[in-house]
Write a protein that binds this DNA or RNA. Structure first.
Lengths: 183, 183
DNA sequence: CAGTATCCTGTCCGATACTG
DNA sequence: CAGTATCGGACAGGATACTG
């Protein structure tokens, strides 16, 4: 996305901002989608996406530079590369599937055209985000975002810490400011 | 994002493409992030994000038009509106948290600055996408994306159907082409 | 086949000024 | 406070031509 090309409106610590720097441009997400579907060669991406070759080069290089794709030679004479997903790129599948589920739920009034199924049985899957440790669904307000241990002062000021420090003044004197470090 | 401003490189049926049309611009995602953190008024968004007012107006209107935010009067004299999340907007939280988890895992080498915790206990949560029905983690290749019941011919041609029809030619004569409709 | 090199257009976005 | 109006720059992105 080349977010922050001017003067960084993003909190540089925010993991969402950091992710958006990598996949904030929609071509990047679509290229990753194609990679998940099996594409790895330049012309596969180009044909499947209908993207201009110069844009494809640019986006592929960016994804490689960001560590989401790896450029790997599959032929030496002539030298040819394929683009394969790195572990970080593979992990983006969770995000993509969450996006897909959201789109299917709210923007597919005529029914699901693309869905997630069990590869073995074909049973459709219904994606749900849970906490790996407790197994509980990650709903709000049962769960919330707070400043973490590596947060700087600015982040701690902008984000609540745990235990809950209300945005509206509820001045308690209990020493709760650094509880989030217990994470 | 105003994707497809020119000639629609996106499969119009793809739920990812449809989602990207709504939140493909990074300001939109950041505005939603602020809304989840409690922002609802124009100047709250503006101050927290450092966004230019004309851009904020444009993005807010787009989010309202897309059904992710609702414009609601909170004062009649003078007329003032606040922007509150619709159910569809609330559901985007799952996506945002998935993005956050991905960013924390791969792009936060110095530790997590912002994290998800149990609101009651403060225990950090580790987001994981599972299948709501079976409870199994949504991993690949155990799960895969296929054309769904509402898929048109073009989509069925581009996406595999279930049972698995390999991209590489494995010409079986078994009538498996419309099995996905069983979903 | 796998790109690179140019040129061009649209628009995202910021800065600033202004209004009830 | 909650926006609207206008201006200008940077760049994403498309189209096309070209190369080994």
């Amino acid at each position: 996305m080349a977010v922050m090309q001017h003067n960084s409106p993003l909190n540089p610590q925010c993991p969402i901002g950091r992710s958006l720097e990598r996949v904030g441009e929609w071509w990047s997400i679509l290229i990753l989608r194609e990679a998940f579907l099996g594409a790895s060669r330049f012309d596969q991406f180009q044909k499947n996406l209908g993207i201009a070759p110069n844009m494809l080069t640019r986006r592929l290089n960016a994804l490689v530079a960001d560590g989401l794709l790896e450029k790997r030679p599959y032929s030496t004479r002539p030298l040819r590369h394929e683009y394969v997903l790195t572990p970080a790129g593979q992990d983006f599948r969770q995000v993509l599937w969450a996006i897909m589920a959201w789109g299917n739920k709210h923007f597919a009034p005529e029914g699901t055209a693309i869905q997630l199924v069990d590869s073995a049985t074909g049973a459709p899957a219904d994606p749900l985000l849970i906490d790996r440790h407790s197994g509980r669904p990650l709903t709000w307000p049962a769960f919330r975002t707070v400043a973490g241990p590596a947060a700087d002062a600015r982040t701690k000021a902008r984000y609540p810490v745990w235990p809950a420090r209300e945005p509206t003044p509820a001045p308690e004197t209990k020493p709760a400011a650094n509880a989030a470090d217990a994470a």
